[in-house]
Simulated scan of single mutants.
Amino acid sequence: MVKFEQIKGFIFDLDGVIANTSLYHGQAWHQLADELGVTWTEDLANQLKGVARMDSLNLILKAGGKENDYTEAEKEKLAAKKNENYLGLLDSLSQDDILPGMKEFIEDLSAHHYLVSLASSSKNSPIVLKKLDLAKYFDGKVDPATLTHGKPDPEIYVRGAEVLNLKPEECIGLEDAIAGVKSINGAHETSLGIGDPKILNEADLNFNDTSEVTLENIKKAMD
Rank of each mutant, 00 (worst) to 15 (best):
G101L: 06
G101N: 07
M102Q: 04
K103F: 08
K103S: 15
E104W: 05
E104Y: 12
E104T: 12
E104A: 10
L109E: 11
A111M: 13
A111V: 09
H112A: 12
Y114F: 10
V116Y: 15
S117W: 01
L118F: 13
S120N: 09
S120P: 08
S120W: 09
S121E: 07
S122L: 02
N124R: 15
N124G: 12
N124Q: 12
P126W: 10
V128P: 12
K131M: 08
L134K: 09
A135M: 14
Y137H: 11
F138R: 10
K141T: 15
K141G: 14
K141C: 15
A145L: 14
L147I: 04
L147K: 07
H149A: 12
K151Q: 06
K151V: 05
P152L: 00
E155S: 00
I156Y: 06
I156H: 04
I156T: 06
Y157S: 03
V158Q: 05
G160N: 04
A161P: 03
A161C: 01
E162W: 03
L164M: 02
N165G: 11
N165W: 07
L166K: 08
L166A: 07
L166W: 06
P168G: 00
P168A: 00
E169R: 06
E170S: 00
C171N: 01
C171T: 01
L174I: 06
L174W: 01
E175M: 01
A177H: 04
A177Q: 08
A179Y: 07
A179V: 08
A179R: 05
A179Q: 11
G180S: 04
S183R: 01
I184H: 04
E189Y: 12
T190K: 02
